[in-house]
Deep mutational scan, measured.
Amino acid sequence: DHDVVPEDKFQETLHLKEKEGCPQAFHALLSWLLTQDSTAILDFWRVLFKDYNLERYGRLQPILDSFPKDVDLSQPRKGRKPPAVPKALVPPPRLPTKRKASEEARAAAPAALTPRGTASPGSQLKAKPPKKPESSAEQQRLPLGNGIQTMSASVQRAVAMSSGDVPGARGAVEGILIQQVFESGGSKKCIQVGGEFYTPSKFEDSGSGKNKARSSSGPKPLVRAKGAQGAAPGGGEARLGQQGSVPAPLALPSDPQLHQKNEDECAVCRDGGELICCDGCPRAFHLACLSPPLREIPSGTWRCSSCLQATVQEVQPRAEEPRPQEPPVETPLPPGLRSAGEEVRGPPGEPLAGMDTTLVYKHLPAPPSAAPLPGLDSSALHPLLCVGPEGQQNLAPGARCGVCGDGTDVLRCTHCAAAFHWRCHFPAGTSRPGTGLRCRSCSGDVTPAPVEGVLAPSPARLAPGPAKDDTASHEPALHRDDLESLLSEHTFDGILQWAIQSMARPAAPFPS
């Protein structure tokens, strides 16, 4: 592969990997390779389809078979030569091979799209000592099968071997295949498990690692696999990028399955594409389908809103127990993405979901129960707010008499603000006073009005108090039968009158 990737590009890729991570280095090298001529790309395919690569990765054979028959990708048995050289000459001794072996032994695996480039050397060096003999053996194999790289107009793939297949390693990572398949204008990513390549439709969760975000852009890794992070704060999961590491605690105790298979379609829109997988259930989501939507993949363990709600429900009964003089119970939860139609709101002032922060849900004790107040519409209280300059209440639009249902020339009671006709409430011909108009209920007259088809109010509507207090003497005590009587009149003013009279009014101040 030294004929494909020059030394300066190799060093530039290593520097970019240390600065921005393996995914960015892979993407940059792939983009550079696509700008080369067809001879360089053909050399790339020839390096990929060597015999030892085909033996190690069985899924490469179907890719090789898909090439046109007129494309010669065979390799000479006596060494490598550029395709432009007409004579089959043995190339001179390859010093770059020693360079590659020494550099890969030092860096474990470079971040390139060629056999030198995919593992994360920093994480491997940190986690190597417990498994040094086995990992050293794996390093000797890295130059042979560490990076199976493929690129063409139909298929483009980048393979990364790992030393996680050490025997006896619980939940060992089998390997990473960062794979971009450009077929019919689409893009897919796969993962390699035990020599087999699994596409998103049959993606397997190998051991402790999972394909957290099938994305090839942005600074985030394709698999949430930063070796420096180790395990999740809650004892979460091992990262795919942690090559040759000792077994780590796999999943939280509440995880239903340690080796679950995540779905390959969004649980909201039932469509495929780039998904984020939940650590607590097999569901996966688009970032845009979450509520609120996320802009980037959160670091650490992530769970959907259903799993978060289940966790909150487990903690909430203990938080609601009476604990005198104790601060509110704080339950730190990872930043969760909410699927459509589901929402768990945190306290005000918290950062938005999706940031690399930890939301704190506070379970406050329930407030003391209070008697429910009568629910009145805002339009129902409008007549009470229509007060004239002299303190006389004006008529609201649409006000109707509670007896006849007519809204023409209605009066407004100064005591309960109900609309009424003087002739309907006082049919006996009582003279109307000039000021202080009161309806039949507030004036103490319980004589029913002779209106055909309208039920008369119940005599129990009024329960006047002592006459010594004029204001308190007109406080009506309405009961269920009074409400039914008012409802039978089918008037809004009657219902409003009952609601206003049912509310307690402050006692009249004593004259000074």
Rank of each mutant, 00 (worst) to 15 (best):
S245K: 13
V246N: 05
L250G: 07
A251S: 11
P253I: 10
P256V: 11
Q257H: 10
Q260R: 10
Q260D: 04
K261A: 04
D264M: 06
E265Y: 07
E265L: 08
R270V: 12
D271Y: 07
G272N: 12
G272Y: 11
G272L: 14
G273Q: 12
L275Q: 14
C278S: 10
G280K: 06
C281S: 11
F285Q: 14
H286N: 13
C289V: 08
L290E: 15
S291C: 10
L294N: 14
L294S: 12
E296T: 10
E296Q: 00
I297K: 05
S299F: 14
W302S: 13
C304M: 09
S306Y: 11
L308M: 07
Q313Y: 08
Q316N: 05
P317N: 14
P317R: 12
R318W: 08
E320Y: 14
E321Q: 09
P322Q: 13
R323I: 10
Q325E: 12
P328L: 11
P328F: 12
T331M: 15
G336E: 15
L337F: 07
L337K: 09
A340F: 03
E342G: 10
R345K: 12
R345C: 05
G346P: 10
E350R: 11
M355Q: 03
T357G: 12
T358G: 09
L359K: 12
V360E: 10
Y361C: 05
L364C: 07
P365F: 14
P365C: 03
P368Q: 12
S369V: 09
A371S: 10
D377Y: 13
A380E: 08
L381N: 11
L381P: 07
P383D: 00
P383Y: 04
P383S: 11
L384N: 11
L384P: 07
C386R: 08
C386A: 06
V387L: 06
E390Y: 14
G391T: 15
G391Q: 15
G391V: 13
N394Q: 05
N394C: 11
N394E: 12
A396E: 08
A396W: 13
G398E: 07
A399N: 00
A399Y: 13
G405L: 02
D409K: 03
L411I: 11
R412S: 09
C416E: 02
A418L: 07
A419F: 09
A419K: 05
F420M: 03
F420H: 02
H421N: 01
H425G: 08
H425K: 04
T430G: 10
G436M: 12
L437T: 05
R438V: 03
C439M: 01
R440L: 14
R440E: 12
R440S: 07
C442G: 03
C442I: 02
G444I: 10
V446K: 08
T447W: 12
P448Y: 14
P450I: 15
G453E: 05
L455H: 03
L455D: 04
P457S: 11
R461G: 03
G465H: 14
G465I: 08
K468M: 03
D470F: 06
T471S: 14
A472K: 07
P476F: 12
H479K: 05
L486Y: 11
H490W: 00
T491I: 02
T491Y: 14
T491S: 15
F492S: 00
D493F: 04
G494A: 04
L496A: 01
Q497S: 05
S502C: 06
M503P: 03
M503E: 05
R505K: 12
P506V: 04
